[in-house]
Design a protein around this nucleic acid. Structure first.
Lengths: 183, 183
DNA sequence: GTCTATATCAGGATAGAC
DNA sequence: GTCTATCCTGATATAGAC
């Protein structure tokens, strides 16, 4: 699965060559087909893998780091997705591609919608901790906007239309605006 | 070019088959290669085509319609991109795909960054008409957020993670929040 | 400008041995 | 579980006639 995430981040979903994946994982193509029914099976498993991994690295804090307040948690969770480390870049690129390919291929749409919902709810929950009086609908709306914006900024960054630092500033500004709105 | 926009909207950039494009346009594949150097040439021309077309349909107002105020212009410009008409859907799908494919293929990055900048500046200008006292940097930031959000919402819509009506509500809410912020 | 025909090649998927 | 070898389809790009 790590190899799959790497290859998809490097070539895209539509550029994924099973042979390249096999080489990256150090096995034969036949073995890939032994473990996964077909290309789609590989993609489905990779989507789950990167969702879990993102969940992990946005949630975990280094041991010894002082605990963050609610707003800090929120900012961390969203801004951590805009970082130039191998793991995050891989995750962002692969997530964006799975999203983009679902426009033309319905097969992964359900899995993707489910994963999106989980993510939106997480962010809504964090927003709720900063604004305990915020209504559920308003929190959900803000969470949808913030996560959709993050996807938009992320692909602009990765496609070379927006420097990473600027993307981060814009994201921080949006968090600010949504919290104002929920006041 | 119309055929190219249709095919890219139907199959994606990576799913574009020159043969299918040729059939859609009612000509042979060889003729496509006579007019465009290669696949990339087709894509580059299509990007320009859809940029111009979007410029047109977000700017033009029906003859006889009463003129909109500044805020109405702004809302129209952004919300018109979230509509289920053939032309808009085609444009959104193709634009999103050109963006997504640039993550893995650098060839169109410059053209895309340029087209993005033009769009952001247009929106910043409209924002400036609603908030004449807004500083240039603040207006630019808001425009970047709004357009990036639109891209994010658009791909969620087209990939089946978000109903169109809801996407429109979220967009309207964001316009609201940004105008608050610029007050 | 436009076509038919085709060279050429890459990549998904599987057969069958170990 | 894992490999080697290969079938077969489908796609880009070009040659050459009209």
């Amino acid at each position: 699965m790590e190899a799959a995430a790497r290859v998809i981040a490097r070539r895209g979903v539509r550029g994924l060559r099973v042979e390249e994946l096999a080489a990256e994982a150090g096995v034969s193509t036949a073995l890939i087909y032994y473990h996964f029914k077909d290309r789609t099976g590989i993609l489905r498993a990779t989507l789950e893998f990167i969702s879990d991994r993102a969940e992990r690295y946005t949630t975990e804090r280094e041991t010894g780091a002082q605990p963050l307040d609610a707003r800090g948690e929120l900012e961390q969770t969203l801004l951590l997705e805009l970082q130039d480390t191998a793991e995050v870049r891989e995750n962002s690129a692969a997530w964006g591609e799975l999203r983009a390919s679902a426009v033309f291929d319905p097969e992964l749409r359900e899995d993707l919608a489910r994963a999106t919902l989980v993510w939106v709810q997480e962010v809504a929950e964090l927003l709720g901790r900063v604004r305990p009086m915020g209504g559920a609908a308003a929190l959900a709306g803000s969470a949808e906007r913030l996560t959709a914006l993050l996807e938009g900024l992320s692909v602009r960054w990765l496609s070379g239309s927006l420097p990473l630092a600027h993307a981060r500033e814009l994201m921080a500004g949006a968090i600010d605006a949504e919290l104002q709105r929920l006041r």
